[in-house]
Amino acid sequence: MTGLKFSTHLVSAPLHTPFVTALRTATHADSLLVSITDGEYTGWGEAPQVWKVTGESLAGAQACVEGPIATALTGLGADDLTEALRRVQGAAQANFGAKAAVDVALHDLAAHRAQKTLQGFLGSTVTTVKTDVTLSAGDSAALVQAATDRLADGFDVLKVKVGTGDAAADFDRVRRIREAVGPGPRIRLDANQGWHRRDAVTVIRALEDAGCAIELVEQPVAAADLDGMAWITDRVSTPILADESVYGVRDLVNVIRRGAADLVNVKLAKCGGLATARTLLELAREHGLGSVVGSMMESHVGVGAAAALVAAYPTTAVNDLDAAWWLEQPPVSGGIRYEGSTIHLPSTPGLGVTGLIA
């Protein structure tokens, strides 16, 4: 792009608490940060490394950004946002994290040039959004303690990781959490593809019969098993949320056509950035599906962009944007800040990010 300079930065930010799911255990948030400058302003974006979900590596994301994406944008000026975003999506197959990083950086740069916050650039005056908080997978005692701790931290929507291979134990853990926290806090479950369809129905129905008031169940079975997810959706009252099953528009169309889920979880690193994410949220709304905006294990850059999206395109349920809360220290200065379950969006232009922390 004429007059614009790309830079990539590999970061590994330690978490204050290990993050455990049915798919992995994380102690650091590993990401590729991308900055794009026009000489006066700088836009930031992020591609997280999540081997077990997207299959993308930081090395691959960096090569994609510095290779085909940068080549595709050659010759465009700083004001050619629409064309730049189109070219980013067409520069390579898949590589959604790399595309998301550049897409967000271009949006951030455009917001800076317009002297608007990113949510303002997207058409919103909202300054705060709400998030849930995840309880890492563990035994009953550890989960009950984590739930109590998170309530004390100011969160009131608890996301419990299940699907670790023992359906009966999953039921017992969730039941014990509900008994410990009482009826007030909302509890949602995320199996991360870890259940078989019959186990999913058995556990969800048992929780319904026990009065555990589960708000929703996320991705109970393998991403490709839309028939299985539709089978579950038809047999339980608790809403089913599609996550790993939906990357782009074609995936969401398939979910809608097959009645496979009640809601969709839109993530920038899955779909390739803000441009596609907006389309997914609008498509879900038009077809009566609920929606949540989520995050991978990202920093204040990626989560800040997702929060700005939520501010401009409200979802039907509390969003899943606690990822940056887990960091001991952000890798960048500026940006969003957490106050319990409330994410405060910056009042300064773009994402409010002013640079890397050395």
Rank of each mutant, 00 (worst) to 15 (best):
T233K: 09
N192I: 06
R250S: 07
A213K: 05
D190V: 03
L189W: 01
E244H: 01
G248I: 04
V236P: 06
V253P: 10
G259R: 02
R198P: 08
A191N: 02
I187K: 04
Y247E: 04
A261P: 08
A242T: 03
A223H: 06
I240T: 02
V255D: 07
W231C: 07
W231F: 13
D262L: 09
L216V: 14
S237N: 13
A191S: 13
D234L: 14
T238P: 14
A200T: 12
L241F: 05
P220T: 08
L252G: 03
V255P: 02
L252T: 04
H196R: 14
G211V: 14
A224S: 10
D227T: 12
R188V: 01
E208I: 11
V201F: 15
I204K: 03
D209N: 14
V217T: 09
M229H: 05
I214G: 00
V253H: 13
I232P: 00
V253I: 15
V246N: 02
S237T: 14
S237I: 11
R197E: 12
S245Q: 06
P220F: 03
R197V: 10
L226V: 00
C212R: 04
R188Q: 11
D251T: 08
D199T: 15
S245C: 09
E218Y: 03
Y247K: 00
A260F: 06
A200Y: 13
C212Y: 02
D227N: 09
I240P: 00
T233R: 11
L216C: 12
A200W: 12
A224E: 03
I256F: 10
A222W: 06
A222G: 12
G211L: 11
P239Y: 05
Q193S: 10
A261T: 08
I232H: 01
T238A: 10
L263P: 05
M229I: 07
V255R: 09
E218Q: 09
E215W: 07
G194P: 01
L207I: 05
A242W: 00
E215N: 08
D251C: 02
A200E: 12
N254F: 04
D190T: 11
D199E: 15
A213Y: 00
D262S: 13
V255E: 02
W195E: 03
A224P: 00
A224H: 04
D225G: 06
I204A: 13
V255F: 05
T233H: 05
V255Q: 00
C212F: 05
L189E: 08
H196W: 10
I214Q: 07
A213I: 01
L189G: 08
T233E: 06
R250E: 15
S245G: 08
D234A: 15
L263W: 01
D262M: 09
R188C: 08
V217S: 07
Y247W: 03
Q193W: 05
D209R: 15
L241K: 03
D243T: 05
Y247Q: 01
